[in-house]
Design a protein around this nucleic acid. Structure first.
Length: 298
DNA sequence: GTGTTTGTTATCAA
DNA sequence: CTTGATAACAAACA
């Protein structure tokens, strides 16, 4: 389940591996995964350069040059947007590792067998590197977009972005000020706060000692502050650890994230709370598996 | 065959 | 009109 820290890890790695490279070929293996036809993808992408890899929430944004030159034209398709949803993976193999099968890496993916049965599309770069988009459940997508479309999409769907200057205690409080949702549902809502998913919401609420079923208006200002600090702390720590692998996530080199061993509650229903040693509960809130400590969290 | 997993959106009710 | 609750999607696993 790639959330903000996992997508950020991939973004950073891809910045090193594909920025300033030219796209030599495009293959769309699963048409449903792509916003346009395979022919349109090839026509638009082949020959362009990757200018930047950025991110908004869980959305990966690849900025394209207008042609071979390092120019971003303001008209036409300027972006390749990639959303990994639940089981999406982006695996980059340079020419050497493709031939060697990636054996030198501590990899969870059998890179010598790429593309595999879950590969939905891939890009070939001018240096022989291949970027594979794998997605077992086919929820993820590749979308070509103009600047106008991207701006509208972000405006419509994404609230403040953690770890940026816009994410202050004030903007956090403001985002939550007009909702009566349960706090778990509110934190999962990308329009209120961008980037958190089921794992980090449970972790953040445990850290802030707040029960997931609490209604947002019932949360006191000092609790909101603890929650704000918990979001910043846990997201930063998870990025440092290159994300969490619970079932499916791997980084662009096919490796697991290291934050899994720091999870306090997610996936630990029935185990002891690390703080008070009473059993952790597992329930369903907002339609999602929810893990919390009934003693520590009020 | 049944239930469970989740990011996001569609659908419906209030 | 808005807000919120829930179903649906897809595919694999226990």
């Amino acid at each position: 389940m790639p959330e903000l820290p996992e997508v950020e890890t991939i973004r950073r790695d891809l910045t090193a591996s594909i920025v300033k490279r030219q796209i030599a070929a495009v293959e769309i293996l699963s048409p449903k995964t792509a916003s346009h036809s395979a022919a349109f993808f090839k026509r638009e992408l082949v020959g362009r350069k990757i200018m930047a890899v950025s991110r908004r929430g869980k959305l990966l944004i690849i900025t394209l040059s207008s042609g071979k030159d390092e120019v971003v034209n303001s008209e036409g398709i300027n972006y390749l947007l990639i959303h990994l949803k639940m089981t999406g993976q982006l695996i980059y193999l340079d020419k050497k590792n493709r031939v060697a099968g990636g054996h030198s890496l501590n990899t969870k993916v059998e890179t010598e067998k790429l593309p595999n049965s879950h590969t939905r599309a891939y890009l070939v770069m001018d240096n022989g590197g291949h970027l594979y988009f794998n997605d077992m459940r086919k929820f993820g997508y590749l979308k070509l977009a103009t600047k106008k479309e991207l701006d509208a999409l972000i405006e419509k769907n994404y609230g403040p972005e953690p770890l940026t200057p816009e994410f202050t205690l004030e903007t956090f409080k403001k985002a939550l000020s007009r909702t009566n949702l349960k706090i778990k549902a509110a934190l999962l809502n990308q329009k209120l706060i961008a980037g958190l998913g089921n794992i980090y919401v449970d972790e953040v609420l445990w850290e802030a000692r707040i029960r997931p079923e609490r209604l947002v208006p019932s949360i006191r200002p000092e609790e909101l502050k603890k929650l704000f600090l918990a979001i910043n702390k846990i997201i930063a720590l998870a990025i440092e650890s290159r994300g969490t692998t619970f079932s499916n996530y791997v980084d662009s080199q096919g490796r697991s994230g290291n934050f899994s061993k720091f999870l306090k509650v997610y996936g630990r229903g029935g185990e002891k709370c690390p703080k008070c040693h009473n059993p952790l509960q597992k329930t369903k809130i907002a339609g999602r598996g929810t893990h919390y400590c009934p003693i520590c969290q009020k």
